[in-house]
Amino acid sequence: MATLNINGRSVQVDADPETPLLWAIREHIGLTGTKYGCGIAQCGACTVHLDGVAVRSCALPLSAVAEDQKILTIEGLSPDGTHPLQVAWRALDVPQCGFCQSGMIMAAAALLAEKPRPTDEDINEAITNICRCGTYNRVRAGIRQAALGGTAG
């Protein structure tokens, strides 16, 4: 039995300690906004925050997550979908199929938390998530817009 601090609440998870955090989030806790895309930390669809840092939860076993570490998923990013990135995403119609977008937004949110005004190079380095629909240019535009407080494109 593991105890996780997720989106501000403490939950008990009855899973093998080797279970990746992704599957605890999806199958045990029932938060399905975080996606399975590759299982080997390549695609970033499973990105969540661990103490504010973007991590790929598909390759992080429960045994490596301490009780007091704060896990944030897309469902906890904002209470009502009004994080500046979510607002920008809607304004620019960033998602296509949308499957990778939870991970994209979480990766971008960690970037903005660290660097409120990221350069293009910062964005390139931080956003290595895979999108097969090809939303990359709108992801970049969305990050820029959110960084500017939603005032410009």
Binding site: R26, L31, T32, G33, T34, K35, Y36, T73, I74, E75, L77, G81, L85, Q86, W89, R90, D93, V94, P95, G98, F99, Q101, S102, I105
Partner: peptide
């Protein structure tokens, strides 16, 4: 604007996997 963007920004969009 697309009709289906909002739920894709909050994790609410349901896919087969979910």
């Amino acid at each position: 604007s697309r009709l289906d963007t909002a739920d894709k920004t909050t994790g609410k969009q349901v896919y087969g996997q979910d």
